[in-house]
Design a protein around this nucleic acid. Structure first.
Lengths: 124, 124
DNA sequence: TTATGCATACGAAGATTTTCGTTAACATTA
DNA sequence: TAATGTTAACGAAAATCTTCGTATGCATAA
C-alpha cells in the first residue's frame, strides 16, 4: 500500500471522521474546504481503491467506500516521516512543538503526564 | 514562500543538519538515502532559490546554499498540517502517538513534563 | 416507450514535481 | 596553448498527481 498523496489524504480524512460514505457524501464534505468536481472525487476514489487505500461495497447502486488504511496506522506512518524529515528524528522536539502550538485541555495534559509516568517506570 | 515539496524537504533537511553547503556536498549527503544525479540536485536547488526556500552565495565559483526557511518555521508549518489532516486537529493524540512511538530520554521526558506544568499554570 | 436524472467508468488533458542530457564558462594541468 | 575536469545554466523529457469531459448503464417519471 503506497503512501497516500495530499488529495487522497483529504479523502481519507473524511472517511475517518464520518465512516463509510458514498461518493456524493464524500464530495459534499470535501467541497466545504476545496472546490472539486464530482467526477474528480469519484476518480480519486477509484484510484484509491486500486491502490488498496479504500474498500468499496458495490452491492448497492451507489457504491459505499470506507478507509482501508486505519487512521492510527496513517498517524504512525506520517508522524515517523515528519519526525525524520523535519525534526531530525527527535520525538522530543516534536512533542514540545506540538504542545506549545495548540492548547490541550487539562484532562488531555493529565493523560499525557500519565503516559510519561508509565514510560519512565517501564524504562527503569 | 510556497510549501516545500517532498524532494525539497529532503534537501532542506540536509541544510538544516549540516549548515550551508555546496551542491556537491548536498548531493553526497543526499545520495546516502536516495539515488539522484548531480544535476538533479543542482536543478532542485535552483528552483528552490527561485521560490525563496534557500539563499545562494555566488561569490565563489562553487555556489554555497543555505536554508532560507528556518527549521522551526517548517516544523510549525508541517506539524499544524499533520495535526489537521491526520489527527483531526488533536494535538493531544499526536503527542501521545509521538511519545509511544519513539523513546525519549529521561531528561527529555522531564523537559516535557516541565512544559506541561507551565501550560497548566498559565492556563489557570 | 421515451425522456430525465443520477450513478459509475474511462481516457485523456493539465498541472506539478522530478529527473537528467547537453551546453557553456572557467580553472587547472600538461 | 590545448586538453581535461569541475561547475552552473538551461530546457525538456519523464513521472506523478489532479482534474474533468464524455460515454454508458440503470432507475424512475412522464
Amino acid at each position: 500500500m503506497p503512501k497516500p498523496t495530499e488529495g487522497e489524504l483529504a479523502i481519507l480524512s473524511v472517511l475517518w471522521r464520518r465512516g463509510p460514505r458514498t461518493v456524493r457524501e464524500i464530495y459534499s464534505e470535501f467541497n466545504e474546504t476545496r472546490e472539486t468536481g464530482y467526477t474528480t472525487v469519484l476518480k480519486m476514489l477509484q484510484i484509491m481503491a486500486e491502490k488498496g487505500l479504500v474498500m468499496r461495497d458495490e452491492t448497492q447502486k451507489c457504491h459505499v467506500y470506507q478507509a482501508a488504511l486505519a487512521q492510527s496506522d496513517a498517524q504512525r506512518w506520517f508522524l515517523g516521516d515528519l519526525m525524520d524529515r523535519v525534526f531530525n528524528g527527535s520525538a522530543h522536539r516534536l512533542v514540545l512543538q506540538a504542545l506549545s502550538t495548540k492548547k490541550a485541555s487539562a484532562v488531555e495534559l493529565a493523560e499525557i503526564r500519565k503516559l510519561i509516568d508509565e514510560i519512565e517506570k517501564g524504562g527503569k
